[in-house]
Write a protein that binds this DNA or RNA. Structure first.
Lengths: 232, 232
DNA sequence: GCAAAAGTGTTGAGATTACACCCATGC
DNA sequence: GCATGGGTGTAATCTCAACACTTTTGC
């Protein structure tokens, strides 16, 4: 902590010393073309010039961490309403060669279509990369990517947050595809449908999606807020 | 992040601005007298004078976060070898009224008996409190306590980290008691034993614990390193 | 008519729960 | 001898995994 009695001694020592800086980074996931993708920005300056990294920036005094994360994401993607949670805090001393910077990483999910908003106005290059083919990233962001991917897989298994990767209406097939892509695992269609419907998270709409083949029943989530459920 | 190209503009703005400070706090759990307890220190100075809080302190430049956490714990308890993992980062602006301080909270487990080392040499009061009867804590530490407790419960269910709350040799009854105390739930003794033995995490020692009643078989963990296992 | 995705039930295996009695010891 | 915790087995239920054929549509 900070103004802690028992720490008076060390605090006095450190008071004049420089402190580590605080940054937030955001790992943004979406499903596009049947692939799990993540948003990267290209770095224009400094030791990592030309390398890709997750969007992020320094936290300002007086700014809450999640607000900083949300701001970052909005600036980069224009996406405002998304699922956002804290992922992990990376504090390795030399992760940023320029200065000791502690990075609080966030993890976010955006529904398909939000990509359209990815025109980086005043920003440099910005692009969605398949998670399975990430380039070498700046800082410790490859490790961050792995942590985020694992969290995503875990959360998909025991919460209902898939809803934030889907449009308001979707078919059971589309839902299943998302699970298969993220968990990298195939599911039996009959078992999958029975399980999902038994959970009561979905409500059937009286509509059909028409396409190249047999029309499929459309569903929506009964609740679009995070909750813990043993899904798979 | 920090020296990020696309952030050049804002970085320049913030460069001269003060940054939030970084602290680590540690929530330390143990089982004592059949109760789950956590370690608190009493604050001697500042706005929270006289209140209890989790041990913690500012991170120094050049110091990795987990090293800072370990240092804190060692200074306070003398415990060196314990299970330690990052819990969550608390970044609410006014959590420390003195200055915007981001706290990276850690969560640690110590085996019984380590309490003996809790003589706070140069430190003020230090004490183990039952988790169910925590006083009003300084900062946002009551919220931190809840987060830590939830994490402990979750981790106990899907990992083998109980080993770090137990001495090298223990009975199945002692193991079961820990689960019951932490998860606040009763288990059927026969089912519990069958499940635990089936997991293969334990090895029977050819020894007995003698006490007030019928001697109980002693067990040890086959592995004393963290791994994921669906325990209960 | 054919390719492609949607829809639908049943069965067996394994896991989980509930439950009751005898045993070894210290006092 | 009695109070206390240790030790053991079985049956009923539930959950999960495996599995194949028919339907509807666009082309």
């Amino acid at each position: 902590m900070t103004s802690r009695a028992s720490l008076a001694t060390r605090r006095r020592e450190t008071k004049r010393q420089p402190h580590p800086r605080v940054a937030v980074d955001a790992v943004l996931f979406t499903i596009e073309a049947g692939t799990l993708k993540t948003l990267l920005v290209k770095i224009k300056q400094g030791p990592f010039l030309g390398q890709w990294a997750f969007p992020g920036g320094l936290v300002q005094v007086g700014e809450p961490l999640d607000t900083a994360a949300r701001r970052e994401l909005y600036e980069k993607t224009g996406v405002q309403d998304l699922y956002l949670e804290q992922l992990y805090t990376f504090g390795e001393v030399h992760r940023d060669p320029a200065a000791h910077t502690v990075a609080v990483a966030y993890f976010a999910l955006v529904p398909p279509g939000a990509h359209a908003l990815t025109r980086g106005d005043k920003y440099a290059e910005i692009a969605w990369f398949p998670v399975s083919e990430l380039p070498e990233l700046a800082y410790d962001h490859n490790a961050m990517a792995i942590t985020a991917h694992q969290r995503l897989q875990a959360k998909l298994s025991y919460t209902n947050i898939v809803y934030s990767l889907l449009p308001p209406e979707f078919t059971l097939g589309e839902l299943q595809t998302i699970y298969e892509v993220i968990l990298d695992k195939q599911f039996d269609r009959r078992n999958f449908r029975r399980k999902m419907l038994a959970l009561g998270l979905l409500k059937p709409l009286r509509k059909m999606r028409r396409g190249a083949h047999r029309p499929a029943a459309l569903f929506a989530f009964t609740r679009r807020s995070p909750m813990n459920v043993e899904v798979l």
